[in-house]
Amino acid sequence: MDIIVCLKQVVDPELPARDFAIDPATRRQVREGRPLVLSTYDENALEVALQMKDHQGAKVTALTIAPQATVGDTVRLALAMGADEAVVIDDPRSPELSGPARARMLAAVIRKIGRYDLVLTGCESADLVERLIAPLLAEELGAACVTFVARIDAADGPLVVRRQADEGYHVVEARLPAVLSVTSDEANRPRLPKVKDIVTAKRKPVQIWTPGDLGSMADDGGVEVRDVAIPQRTGKCEFLTGDPAQQAEALALRLRELKLL
């Protein structure tokens, strides 16, 4: 089985509020000087791929679009966790790509790689949270699509996955090739690479392509980002003081005043 895992590098979502800023020119988050990490659920997607490799054998390719100058840690982590090889699309403008443009570029790369049974992504990126890469990739590639996959139930016969749903879970059977977006689950906690893995990872192949290899992606998709604003919190919290019993008493009375009891 050939598995391609799409990874996105983002500014650490746990960044303190004082370090969070929007660049008025690009209307994107300022990245300079901020720590860059692998987007939260992408590690879960990679873990799902690696478990399939462990259990039934698979070749796992990590794919990312990012400026090559900053991508080192992402690729090293993916290879150290156990990916067999990495493909990097070195695009200095990639942090400004819209979701649909990113999906088109990923699809072009995946078509160029050619061999794949499964394409995995995180269920959402930690920055834009658009949740659209997997569905758009599925359309571009003519593949089956299941999003918010918590775990793979079976992959030796037909692919059966468990999709996190509003009411619980859906057990979904999917044809191959398929594009799955992965959410976090007890079953896919990302592994921590061992020192030995980190050393071995340095010998694994990393291909670096440029967007020029893929044809033009210039198109805003008919959507213009007019403004990205940081809402100001009013901060009008009224603190109820006293010992715990007094606080509880005050709160109960306030709830009654507000007709919430």
Binding site: P13, F20, A126, V129, G221, E224, A229
Partner: peptide, 23 residues
């Protein structure tokens, strides 16, 4: 047609003008 959506884990609110059709 103008839409708003949260971005950056809810830290920011994006305003987008949607010109393509259908939107």
């Amino acid at each position: 047609v103008v839409v708003r959506r949260q971005a950056y884990g809810g830290r920011a609110l994006a305003t987008l003008v949607v010109r393509g059709r259908p939107a």
